[in-house]
Design a protein around this nucleic acid. Structure first.
Length: 275
DNA sequence: CTAGCTTCCTGATAGC
DNA sequence: TGCTATCAGGAAGCTA
């Protein structure tokens, strides 16, 4: 479910609720979600730790502890993290519960169980999480047209697959890939090797612009987040391309079309994004 | 190395 | 109503 803008929204909501709190107890109902280390070591390692701050890298959420260790979480498709007051009824598919020093709980729910947790000691490499292979953040100054050309220009694959590659840019998912390419006016199936210099420039501009727009637009209050059980922001009526198959483009009047690219459902405007 | 397919899961929805 | 097929916003792992 969540892409960079959603993970950032969750981070901003959770950080004030968690900073300074100590994790008093860890309850893992489904050890499958713990990717590293073993579930037992994870539990004993996280217990007693005090949370310092929350950061985000691509779609990864990173909970830093005051001792320099960190808890890394990837929500994948359906993972949700909620900070709830004691006594609140537990959601279906709750796989982990962390008790906090203020009496609240961090609850992790995940219908499809694709999400993963890692616990990394201070200085331990990020090879376990794959974060070491991530490309720059969309907002990084090094994300220029030249960078994209250098990474993708020679490739014989669709540009949509190119920007979905986390080692090229971190944080873009299927939805925002469609949004970015719509705003950049690039046909999503166009081969990387066929893009013009202008198109690479527009792409380099639109990537941070659209991601930033996503963060701003999907913003909700902590209360709305809690009442929506962590998924309220998934209602995304503000998107202009994704999910608009069969509808009229407000820019050119053409009808959005649906195609499958690399097994991912894609939506584009044949008027604004010419082949 | 690359591109493409499969796999991990459950649930919502469409079609019969 | 009930059954089956298809699809879902991610990404690792495998094959050729």
């Amino acid at each position: 479910m969540p892409e960079l803008p959603e993970v950032e929204t969750v981070r901003r909501i959770l950080e004030p609720q968690l900073a300074g709190k100590t994790i008093t107890e860890v309850n893992i109902r489904n050890p499958q979600i713990i990717a590293h280390p073993s579930s037992d070591v994870f539990i004993s390692s996280v217990s007693g730790k005090t949370i310092k701050c929350l950061e985000r890298r691509g779609k990864f959420l990173i909970i830093y502890m005051t001792d320099g260790n960190k808890l890394v979480i990837h929500l994948r498709m359906t993972g949700q993290i909620l900070v709830v007051p004691p006594g609140m009824e537990e959601e279906k598919h709750t796989h982990a519960v962390f008790s906090l020093s203020d009496g609240n709980q961090i609850r992790y729910t995940d219908v499809r169980r694709f999400g993963r947790f890692w616990f990394l000691k201070n200085g331990e490499e990020d090879t376990f999480t794959g974060m070491d292979k991530l490309g720059p953040e969309p907002f990084d100054n090094c994300l220029t047209a030249d960078y994209l050309i250098n990474k993708l220009n020679g490739k014989n694959k669709p540009i949509k697959a190119g920007i979905l590659d986390q080692s090229v840019v971190a944080g873009i998912g299927n939805i925002y890939a469609d949004e970015i390419l719509y705003h950049a006016g690039i046909f999503p199936e166009k081969k990387c090797c066929d893009l013009t210099g202008d198109e690479w420039s527009v792409l380099a501009e639109e990537i941070p612009k659209i991601m930033n727009w996503g963060i701003t637009t999907n913003k909700i209050t902590p209360d709305e987040y809690l009442r929506g059980k962590g998924k309220e922001y998934r209602n995304t009526p503000y998107l202009r391309a994704y999910g608009h198959t069969g509808q009229e483009c407000s820019v050119c009047g053409n009808i959005f079309e649906h195609i499958v690219i690399g097994g991912r459902s894609s939506c584009y405007c044949p008027g604004c994004q010419r082949k």
